[in-house]
Write a protein that binds this DNA or RNA. Sequence first.
DNA 1: AAGCTTTGCAACCGCGGGTCC
DNA 2: TGGACCCGCGGTTGCAAAGCT
Length: 207
Amino acid sequence: MEGYGHASKKGFWTAQEDKVLSDYVKKHGTGKWNRIPKVTGLKRSGKSCRLRWMNYLSPKVKRGDFSEEEVDLVIRLHNLLGNRWSLIAGRIPGRTDNQVKNFWNTHLSKKLGIKKKKKSKVSISPESLPIVEPTGTGQYSIGEGEKLAHKTESLSTGDLTDFASIMHEGIMSDDFESAFSFANSSVFDLCTPYFTDQECFFGLSFN
DNA sequence: AAGCTTTGCAACCGCGGGTCC
DNA sequence: TGGACCCGCGGTTGCAAAGCT
């Protein structure tokens, strides 16, 4: 199944094509991407139109290098969510999933020495929805005292608080189910911890 | 200066899931 | 209920630019 119409042109977009697409979206809004080639005569698939708008033409898209804060956020979120680029991008204003993915693949995975790995689903029983609380001693508690992660010497209390905040937000947000899958299993194996020269990233593991 | 290699990123592809009829 | 259509995601590819010899 491929959907999105029968237009055939591929490759880089021209300024003229960008203008046609932008004008259409300004007039009709997003959605119904398949109608764009029919209405405008653009020789592009609806899918290609959507991608071009979402990743480049939309005024919400921020261009340019990632700031230190954004880099930090990408690293933290990737460690929590894995290759869920859309989820990660959704938490970084102005950045698209494609930008985050490219940035990770070309910069961070190299910098952090991370090899590509297949995505793994997270399983957690609905009854054991964790509530993450920094204990102040470098450990978090989840539900009935299950150990979540340890602190290393290089991490500050602020790091721990951030971590707890991100975890809590992800767990409690509406997109939690898309980030994590629920099953009858009680195994929760989100991330394998790993270390870089400067930082330590947490892993979660409780059975 | 020329040719080759590497890098960065825009765009494409295949697939799964949701909605509508 | 099932097929067609639509949307969005993650992985991959291809090409221009930059770097290197």
